[in-house]
Nucleic acid binder design. Structure first.
Lengths: 225, 225, 225, 225
DNA sequence: GATGAATGAGATTTCATTCAT
DNA sequence: AATGAATGAAATCTCATTCAT
């Protein structure tokens, strides 16, 4: 018995299933055509529901769907961060970082839709006109940054990382992961031939070294001891 | 002074001036509300022209304006890169990189509109449905990457940088600059009170060290010699 | 009576009814103001629907409505031709032609909208720039001409008509009917007072004699035997 | 010395030349794209004048140009009718009619632009909403009909034609000429390959016989004597 | 007289959302 | 609860005409 579904009636479970089906259709289409370019008509068709039904599950319409997707994305990222750093002290910090980066690659490989939505929409929304949307995104991003900053703070305390504001490094780490992954995306989702390549451990190792040790082949005097 | 300056008649110069005025209005509004959110009516009003006049200067409408803006942006970036690395061999590579990063900060500080448009729109467009748009952006981005990759290649040959594909590091460098700068943006352009802070030399130095020497406080065995 | 009539569900029948209501509004306005002069807004208002609703029924907009109207027109003409010549051999050919002409007059009297649209738009369209539109009209006109040419061919074989290309005479016959009827139209559809007069049998008889026996009061030597 | 230009100063003659150049450009474009489809910009470009200049010669704009073209058309038709029937009594009426029809074919062959404008626009205009336009066209068409009705009246008096309202037969005659000629038009003016064929005397003879003696191979009792 | 930049009314079209069934 | 027909605000784009130069 799935513990998540404990305490839910069959009716409630079915409702959640239908919500999930709608969200999946929305994810596909937002990823493919962008939030603005996807129409509710298409989403309804792909979800195999009527247009009106979507409003039973998402009274807030298209925007609510997008925010629900971002909820999933940020929840997933936070879980992934926590899981990656859970055993931080049992292995070298470098290996932990590499594992985290590899997990991120895997996460976005498995949920490439989410990655595309993140890439295409997040920055539109966080610099939007609408104060409520901005507040939502600032909150969510800070949640992720804090989740990642916590183990980074510990690593600084341990002497594994140079001293710097941990949220700042958290941001740079995520920026590098996203920027690296973007270089390896197919340019066009609707062309079926172009598939995302499986992320390799070598790529995670490369990015880990770049982030931790930099691109220079020499050590600066003030950093090395 | 010759009435014909730079080989342009007065009429031609006035035309260019009006084009620039329209583009500036478009830049403001694209930056503020995003490409999709800005309407031609608003752009015309801000440029103090009639709606129809815009089509005399940009027959392709909003899209042509956006591409003209991106032309300016990518031209500016390429010039900035070339200027920053021109005297590469006369100073330490680290100082050259720091100067380049500082120049980028300054460039985006002075043309914050362009930065916002880049942040909000570029990734929408490069993963768009329309093959022509994708082709345009791939071409422009490759132009910038190659311009930056050239001095990076030299630095690798000199032993200033670890060996890696220079376009890859060019991409990571730009991604870090953009990601760092984004952390320091006001969230809302239309609130007049929130201004972008002058970029400091310390910030450029910090990011330079992060990119060249990494975040680790220790050197890996396989990197140090 | 079965709730499903003619193999159509109630829903489907209602849909067809609404389509017909929209087409009728379009017919009125195209006839009155011409295709270019009629706006979708007016058509929607006359059909008592919202503007957007029209696109549910005619996704191709105004043009699709016009083509649907021409479909009706050409279908009607073909049926009328076939019905008029069905009993060709049971009466004198002259009487058959007179009946056909009278039927045409009656058809256009009852559906004067269609006649006006034909008069105002058909020749614009058949000489239009757009190859698809031209192809559509050539196809439709040839369909009518062939339908009419068939009984004319039989009449030539029987010796009722002089030998000539039957499509050519079909064309001339239709041209005469249209040209005669145009002489008797009110000049202005929007003035409600001016009504089309009921076509009389005398008019059909007159035109029949003109077409079959010509305007001359003498017979040419080479024709009479 | 051209007698038409007598009494005109050089300046006045030049003005007329420029007017004619503009009208010729308008004729080409109205014929090709229709009145609605032709833009003043194109007309100005083809006439090799600035857009504004057109309003010096035709203050009424596009509509005035169209009416000026129809003036030429109807003037030309009236002259052609008068010339064709001038020597009516010196040859057989049939030959006069054949010569008239041949002249019409030639006229429209040489000025095919005018023919296309007539075909595409005349019926739009004569059934238009605007009372002034309708009045203009009714006046012009009546002028042509009366000019043609006069010799037809004489022919009826001479016994060459059956008794009927002469304007009615004038109308039918013109309708047949136009209808015949339309069958032999290229469908697409902008395709350069498709040219109008030279009208042959046989075609004029065929149409003459059809109009005067009808399509029947037998004479009706009440007509033959 | 000649010009063409500027204009804005007006047209078509899209689509998120509502709501009666 | 599910539906999809109806809606109309809002966007883009066109082009005849004006008018300052």
């Amino acid at each position: 018995m799935n513990p998540i579904k404990n305490g839910l009636s069959r009716r409630e479970r079915e409702r959640l299933d239908r919500q999930a089906a709608i969200l999946n259709a929305a994810k596909d289409l937002f990823a493919e055509k962008g939030y603005a370019g996807a129409t509710l008509e298409e989403i309804a068709a792909r979800a195999e529901f009527g247009k009106g039904t979507l409003y039973n599950y998402f009274p807030g319409g298209k925007e609510q769907m997008l925010l629900a997707i971002f909820d999933q994305l940020y929840d997933g990222l936070c879980e992934l961060i926590e899981a990656s750093f859970r055993n931080d002290n049992q292995e070298s910090f470098r290996d932990t970082v590499e594992a985290f980066i590899a997990n991120c690659f895997q996460f976005f490989y498995e949920q490439f839709n989410l990655f595309m939505i993140l890439v295409k929409e997040a920055e539109q929304l966080i610099f939007s006109d609408d104060a409520d949307r901005v507040a939502y995104f600032v909150r969510q991003q800070n949640r992720v940054l804090k989740t990642l900053a916590a183990p980074l703070r510990l690593a600084m305390n341990r002497g594994d990382l140079r001293e710097m504001p941990p949220e700042l490094f958290a941001n740079m780490l995520l920026v590098n992961i996203k920027g690296y992954q973007m270089r390896h995306c197919p340019r066009n989702l609707s062309k079926p031939g172009e598939l995302l390549q499986t992320p390799t451990r070598e790529q995670a190792a490369f990015l880990t070294d770049l982030v931790l040790y930099g691109a220079s082949s020499k050590y600066p005097v003030e950093v090395s001891k």
